[in-house]
Simulated assay, not measured.
Amino acid sequence: MFNFFKKTKAVEIHAPVDGKIIKLEEVPDPVFGQKLIGEGAAVLPSEKGHIYAPVDGKIIQVAPTKHAIGILAEDGTEILIHVGLETVSLNGEGFKPAVTVGEKVSVGQLLLEVDWTYIKAHASSTVTPIVITNAQDGKKQIHVTEEKEGIAGKTVMITVNKK
């Protein structure tokens, strides 16, 4: 017998770094703030710690400038972690990737070592957007947590349900 009422498990996206969780609309960058890349939230890092996997999945992108990492969650949700604003111009300075494209990762696994002192001194902001880049496919219902302090790999900041 088929169970038509079976509920699919939601994907919980955890904070990738310790800090204050803010709405994407509060990110001082029009590309993120106006959700041109997708829906999501951001973390204003406490400027300690590194970037950790927010979901179980596979690495699909490590930017050549090391400032951004893309992850494909097990349910097909594509997640972009963009560390800081205007960080592409740093040409990789201040970042040390701990993963490579194609690698499977688990929640809380180290993805990227970050020198927050360098980033704060050379980028326009340390705010780190976490964006669901395939949110516009019409197949996802996205819930962003209310603003609060996030702990890397522990605090759920975004929940994605299949429609």
Results as ranks from 00 to 15, higher is better:
20 K>P: 01
159 T>H: 08
162 K>Q: 12
85 L>H: 10
109 Q>W: 08
98 A>M: 12
7 K>E: 09
125 S>Q: 08
150 G>D: 09
6 K>V: 06
4 F>W: 11
137 D>C: 06
115 D>R: 01
74 E>P: 02
9 K>F: 02
154 K>A: 13
151 I>H: 05
22 I>E: 05
21 I>Y: 03
19 G>N: 07
86 E>K: 12
162 K>P: 02
29 D>P: 03
43 V>P: 01
72 L>Y: 03
38 G>I: 03
112 L>A: 11
30 P>M: 14
51 I>E: 01
4 F>E: 05
160 V>F: 00
117 T>H: 07
112 L>V: 14
5 F>Y: 10
109 Q>M: 08
126 T>W: 13
151 I>V: 12
22 I>D: 00
68 A>Y: 03
34 Q>P: 06
36 L>C: 10
53 A>R: 02
69 I>K: 01
61 Q>P: 01
50 H>G: 01
74 E>K: 11
6 K>T: 08
153 G>Q: 05
159 T>V: 13
65 T>V: 09
133 T>G: 04
71 I>E: 03
18 D>C: 04
59 I>K: 02
8 T>D: 13
122 H>N: 15
2 F>K: 13
104 K>C: 05
72 L>D: 06
62 V>L: 11
37 I>C: 00
106 S>V: 08
103 E>A: 13
32 F>Y: 15
2 F>W: 08
25 E>P: 05
70 G>I: 15
131 V>H: 00
142 I>C: 07
111 L>H: 10
139 K>H: 10
117 T>F: 02
7 K>N: 09
101 V>P: 04
98 A>E: 14
139 K>F: 04
6 K>E: 04
158 I>W: 09
112 L>M: 15
51 I>C: 01
126 T>D: 06
97 P>E: 13
51 I>V: 11
48 K>T: 14
146 E>V: 14
10 A>V: 11
122 H>G: 04
24 L>T: 02
159 T>Q: 13
127 V>L: 14
152 A>L: 00
156 V>H: 02
20 K>G: 03
128 T>I: 09
62 V>D: 11
139 K>V: 10
93 E>L: 14
42 A>S: 12
45 P>M: 14
23 K>R: 15
30 P>S: 14
101 V>L: 07
108 G>W: 05
6 K>L: 04
91 N>S: 13
105 V>Y: 05
147 E>A: 11
12 E>C: 05
79 I>V: 15
124 S>T: 15
83 V>Q: 01
22 I>C: 01
114 V>H: 02
49 G>V: 04
61 Q>T: 12
28 P>D: 12
64 P>E: 14
52 Y>C: 00
144 V>H: 12
105 V>H: 00
92 G>H: 03
18 D>Q: 02
13 I>A: 01
126 T>M: 09
58 K>C: 08
57 G>C: 10
152 A>M: 04
94 G>S: 12
65 T>D: 11
105 V>M: 09
153 G>N: 06
139 K>Q: 07
31 V>T: 13
111 L>S: 03
1 M>A: 11
50 H>V: 00
82 H>N: 05
133 T>W: 12
149 E>F: 15
98 A>V: 09
12 E>Y: 05
117 T>R: 12
79 I>G: 08
2 F>V: 07
19 G>C: 13
88 V>K: 07
153 G>P: 00
75 D>Q: 12
111 L>P: 02
97 P>F: 08
58 K>L: 06
11 V>K: 03
